[in-house]
């Protein structure tokens, strides 16, 4: 399977949810360059709205956001579209939230700053999962 493609051979569709605008922008650029289909959203609400329109393969979700808490967004995502894997990527390194995130069905819990190659790798694993 070529890089950055899902099982059906299409580009992997990734939903980015993070209120840290600069981070979303740079990650968008880097993922896009790796042939990933990225949709940028800057809050939990925007993320949920985006999922209503498109079925994503993977979501990269921040935890501390101003409108809705990341764990709540995760629960909603899992209800709306259980097939989509969610990778938590947060600056808040905490055993407890990690535990909770995994309990609510997150695929992985990564902390910022995260190695880009490792992120790509995790996305691929999530897709093949």
């Amino acid at each position: 399977m070529p890089k950055s493609q899902n099982l059906s051979g299409k580009k992997i569709k990734v939903l980015l949810v993070d209120d840290e605008k600069n981070f979303v922008e740079v990650l968008y650029k880097r993922l896009s360059r790796r042939n990933v289909d990225v949709t940028k959203t800057f809050s939990g609400t925007e993320g949920i709205q985006a999922l209503r329109k498109v079925d994503f393969d993977v979501a990269i979700l921040d935890l501390k956001m101003e409108d809705i808490d990341g764990l709540e967004v995760l629960k909603i995502f899992k209800k709306m579209y259980p097939k989509m894997e969610v990778i938590i990527l947060t600056g808040h390194e905490s055993e407890q939230t990690a535990r909770e995130g995994l309990k609510y069905g997150a695929f992985a819990y990564l902390t910022k700053p995260c190695d880009f190659e490792y992120l790509i790798d995790t996305i691929r694993k999530a897709v093949s999962n």
């Binding site: 840290e20 600069n22 981070f23 740079v26 990650l27 650029k29 880097r30 360059r33 501390k64 600056g91 808040h92 390194e93 902390t111 910022k112 700053p113 995260c114 880009f116």
Partner: peptide
């Protein structure tokens, strides 16, 4: 402090990665 530092550092590292890209 650690949480607050992680976010800007993440952006810096990603931006550097973007330049490398």
């Amino acid at each position: 402090t650690a949480h607050e530092i992680n976010n800007p550092v993440a952006i810096m590292v990603q931006e550097a990665g973007w330049i490398a890209d």
